[in-house]
Amino acid sequence: MSEFTVEDLGRVLREAAGESEVAVGGDSLDTDFAEIGYDSIALLEAAGRIERQLGIQLDDETVGEATTPRLFLAVVNRQGSADAA
């Protein structure tokens, strides 16, 4: 699987939950999702879309602990390579 990037995450979040107050990108990698403007249900909805698009399974609890884009990307890419292995 090719790497799931911060741009990919920004796009999925917009599709899942609408435009945020802060753009999801390189400058907001370590900004809290709450500050960016996405709550836990927005992230749950985004996680569901990522699972469908990439054909992977994400653990709800692990997703819930990923409070910034960097942490969220790490969960997706770790799971993506685990499922590919």
């Binding site: 939950a17 609408g18 945020s20 403007g37």
Partner: peptide, 8 residues
């Protein structure tokens, strides 16, 4: 309404 409210 803001875009955030539309999908929900």
């Amino acid at each position: 309404l803001p875009s955030r409210l539309i999908p929900q």
